[in-house]
């Protein structure tokens, strides 16, 4: 039986207009969603299970987050993950910033419990965007790894993942990685499915285990990092754009005049 562990985060989303309260965005302007990158990681894991045989691959998700995020976890289960682990307790609730080191320590304990062959994590989260947890975790659990993967071809017999890493400037690096490995998954690697009604119904019955730090053999020292969030502000707009105001006919006509001046559409 092969096991794929997918790290899943519920991220905070912010409305276009918002206010800051201290070092956080005022809750009134926050929403919650499945992290976009993790959606692709879940899809990749489910596609692996479908390709190899769903009875031969166990897809497990792990989330660090409060009870509120179970709806997001159920989304992953509805899309085809087999079961879920959620790590949370009062210590985590009271921490104002979980840095890469803290997330690594928690996920390391989960990987040691679960012993997966492959870990898929999103390249980054849409809210704090550290882009580092997957690779840090790989090193902590002594797995191989590859960051920013946009194509994955698994050779289970050969214990190898052939991946493409998306470098800057439209260049892809083709790399073979030995298993077990952590791969950080880039958007666009696949087309994440929508959960079917049947999937949503089945997700309600799938196992979702909650673990406290103590259950994982950890204590509160994991959240005592050297990083502190001390300020948050809206970046000052540097815009010196000429803004056309008025209805669409008016603004379009003004823009058209400028474009013609630049020789566009002549």
């Amino acid at each position: 039986m092969m096991k794929v562990l997918v790290t899943v985060k519920e991220v905070a989303t912010v409305e276009d207009e918002f206010e800051i309260e201290g070092t956080a965005i005022d809750e009134r302007y926050l929403g919650a969603d499945l992290n976009e990158w993790d959606d692709y990681a879940i899809e990749e894991a489910v596609q692996i299970a479908e390709a190899i045989g769903e009875d031969e691959v166990d897809v497990v998700t792990v989330t660090i987050g409060p009870e509120d995020c179970e709806q997001t976890i159920r989304q992953a289960l509805a899309k085809g993950a087999d079961r879920a682990i959620r790590v949370w307790d009062d210590t985590l609730e009271d921490a104002d910033l979980l840095d890469v080191g803290a997330k690594t320590a928690i996920l390391e304990a989960v990987v040691e419990d679960e012993d997966p062959d492959l870990v898929l994590s999103g390249v980054q989260s849409g809210d704090d965007s550290f882009m580092a947890t997957g690779v840090s975790l790989a090193d902590a659990v002594d797995f191989q790894w590859a960051a920013v993967v946009n194509s994955l071809d698994l050779d289970v017999e050969g214990d190898t993942a052939s991946v493409r890493r998306e470098l800057e400037g439209g260049v892809e690096e083709l790399t073979d990685v030995s298993l077990p490995a952590v791969l950080t998954i880039q958007t666009g690697i696949n087309e994440p499915r929508y959960a079917s009604l049947r999937g949503i119904r089945m997700a309600q019955r799938k196992e979702l285990t909650v673990q406290r730090l103590a259950d994982l053999g950890l204590d509160s020292s994991v959240v005592e990092g050297d990083l502190r969030l001390t300020g948050m502000s809206v970046p000052e707009s540097e815009s010196d754009a000429t803004v056309f105001a008025g209805g669409p006919e008016e603004t379009a006509s003004e823009l058209a005049a400028i474009l013609r001046e630049k020789g566009v559409g002549q």
């Binding site: 580092a132 840090s136 090193d139 920013v148």
Partner: peptide, 21 residues
């Protein structure tokens, strides 16, 4: 993309706090 492929591992191995981007 390459910096993010080694810096978190180095930070983990040396137990350094890491701040990215």
């Amino acid at each position: 993309v390459n910096g993010l492929d080694y810096a978190p591992a180095v930070a983990n191995r040396l137990d350094l706090p890491l701040v990215t981007d």
